[in-house]
Amino acid sequence: MTLDDFAFRLNDYVDDEGTTFDALVTENDILEVVCSNNDEFPIHVTMTDTQILSVTPLFSIAEVQPEKRDELNEVFLRLSPAVPLSSIGLQGDTYILFGAMALDTRFQVVAHELEVQAENTIDVLEAVEHLLD
């Protein structure tokens, strides 16, 4: 499945929980997905030879209260194992929530992962909101 195929199917899809998806392939070949359960933090989907990667950029280091950075990092390390299907990481200067799936994962399963990741984004941000500027 290419990113274009995936975008095409996703735009027509409604999952069991009633979530809908707006998907478009950007000019630099990244699939941007907005789930109806969280339209503020889009998910960026890309592929390697073996994996489908879904990335939600959360905030930049600069948005963390400077004296709270250590606390935030520890909270994230402790939180990450408890978050279903997604992990928390740091990419460059940006904290991200991300998921990785095998390339041959069924479409419905990928869509479900994206929906859960959109939901996780809200939960994770609520947990650390007080540490941000």
Partner: peptide
């Protein structure tokens, strides 16, 4: 590299 690309466009 892909994580970097996917993050960069939003950063």
């Amino acid at each position: 590299q892909e994580l970097q690309r996917a993050t960069e466009s939003v950063s």
